[in-house]
Design a protein around this nucleic acid. Structure first.
Lengths: 340, 340
DNA sequence: CTGTTAGCGCCTTCAC
DNA sequence: GTGAAGGCGCTAACAG
């Protein structure tokens, strides 16, 4: 806090002058090149310290052709799935001296192209494309001169690298948990059939039921991802199939709706009826009555993984291809297991 | 899709060569300098088109000292207030050829300093600092060589420029709405007293009540921002003050809790009891029974405004000082006005 | 009007 | 070991 920094940014030649050497020597000294006498190096380092010099990355990248930046191209910042992924990625890159350009295409292909072009013009070293659904999305193609990783929404081109949640696995461990709790008459209320997430979770759930020698009560009930649908569907279900002892819900929102209806119909949760959701959206799960068991998709981890793949590819490690699946984890709360 | 782009990025000299002119002339032609013959300019433009040339912003900013980037320094990406602000800012900048570096300090001062330094090293042209509460936060100080705007959380230094929601106004229009609905026995259940947002909204609410010649039923009930508190507080309130005909809640979450308890106690909303919240968090408001009236803080607009201030300051317009307040707007739904 | 020269800040040969 | 020179891609100032 002693001195106010100079208006003009301090450059390498300022350091060199103060240390009484040439810029070339100063550069070598600061970059750890081993053709410089130790005492000289120390003089340069001290000078740099004193002027609180930090090399201009602009100049550096002009020469190196690398910018130390990556683009994060999201299709949608509204959705709650993108944010944790973004956090994970930002976190992973931040540790590695890489900074992240954020671009939000707001679900618009035109805007996506526009941002893509802007990012490439800025010479980002890599790209993460984050979608809002787990359904495959159009590939950006292969004439992009930097590594690209697709997160959450996989690319429809298998020669791209994509990282996406393993929803089949998620559905399976959900049912396994309910079965482990002693439930045998399990129903499934979920979101839009148009979403791969809904279909995949249902697939996993049905597979786990089969393994356990059980059958789903009624059909999988698809509609939308809302509390409202949860309420309505539960009313239908509990009227037609009062024997149900567990409802697996396609999202925490749906589960909240089911809990409301269960309460209206005087079914006690979890003793009489177990309820669980997906996504582990804490605002919804921890404030529910009782608190809601859910499957967390580990999205932060997904974002971090995507970042690491890009990061590795920067050091010319070959970027893989195909789709990598991230498994979710079970978070048990009072809606499936009685709490004391 | 005819030709694959060259591995090496095309440079201005490629264009110049193709057009048969010098780089300098090519530069002038493409930048609209008026010392170029029209036919020459056309030749250059055509050549650029043909090679799909886009100038290297790295080189350009090395020369200009401006990078066309700004830093978005958030204290927290978890919170639901930061995201809309971020969207607004990204949107406003995107239109102006400016790209945004996203840095998340995750509530940690050390990390904030680290990111700040990284952003300045990258020579961002401006900075937006987004906080997670409306309480004043420590200023980053004045030895930052670029314009800084504080969004949501204002700076504690009045000579900085801050943009923050007008929560007093929000509290006022909320009560005015309830009064306009014919309510006279209004209570207020809100979040932590430690939050300026809670105190400011209460202040505005009390002022509006006074103007209307009314008094609050009971005291302002402060605790935390959760549904759970909404449920518990409503139970207390409706037992001790059954005459209450409206509950103003400090957040949509609290309001959801109040709605639940009202239902448990067989109070009909809105006929018997009006309920409203703040924040207009759509997942909560539009799925409530009935849908929840709320005050929207216009955070996207806040973000956009912050971006515009920075943007203006880039063109050497003097950055203002002090705190600018953004007013919220009333969003009426079925929890205060009967729907037919 | 157009081309030559110089330089933004840095790093890497290549002489000395 | 060290320094001088050249160049990354671009633009501004000057000559022609």
């Amino acid at each position: 806090m002693a001195r106010t920094p100079p208006a003009r940014a301090v450059t390498l030649s300022d350091v060199a002058r103060l240390a009484g050497v040439s810029v070339a020597t100063a550069s070598k000294a600061l970059n750890g090149r081993d053709q410089v006498k130790d005492t000289t190096r120390q003089r340069v380092v001290d000078a740099a310290e004193q002027l609180s010099f930090s090399p201009n990355p602009i100049a550096r990248s002009l020469l190196a052709g690398r910018t130390g930046t990556v683009g994060l191209l999201t299709s949608d910042l509204e959705g709650r799935f993108v944010i944790p992924i973004l956090m994970g990625a930002e976190d992973a890159f931040g540790a590695g001296q890489v900074n992240v350009f954020l671009c939000d295409a707001r679900g618009d292909t035109i805007r996506e192209q526009y941002h893509l072009k802007a990012l490439l013009t800025r010479r980002v070293d890599g790209l993460i494309v984050v979608g809002r659904q787990t359904d495959p999305r159009p590939s950006l193609g292969h004439d992009i001169p930097v590594p690209v990783v697709y997160a959450y929404a996989p690319s429809d081109d298998p020669s791209d690298l994509s990282i996406t949640p393993d929803n089949v696995h998620a559905g399976r461990i959900a049912v396994e948990h309910l079965v482990a709790c002693g439930r045998t008459r399990i129903a499934h209320i979920t979101g839009e059939h148009a979403y791969a997430a809904a279909r995949d979770r249902a697939e996993g759930a049905l597979a786990a039921l089969k393994t356990a020698g059980l059958e789903l009560v009624g059909d999988v009930m698809y509609s939308d991802w809302s509390e409202r649908w949860g309420r309505d569907a539960a009313a239908m279900l509990l009227t037609r199939h009062p024997e149900v002892d567990a409802v697996l819900c396609g999202s925490d929102q749906i589960a909240r709706g089911v809990l409301d209806t269960a309460r209206d119909l005087h079914r006690t949760v979890p003793d009489d009826l177990a309820v669980m959701g997906f996504d582990n959206w804490e605002v919804l799960t921890t404030n529910a009555r009782p608190e809601l068991t859910s499957i967390d998709a580990n999205l932060k981890h997904l974002g971090r993984t995507a970042a690491q793949r890009v990061f590795a590819a920067l050091d010319s490690v070959e970027l893989g291809t195909g789709t990598e699946y991230v498994e979710g984890r079970l978070v048990i709360r009072g809606s499936t297991v009685p709490r004391r």
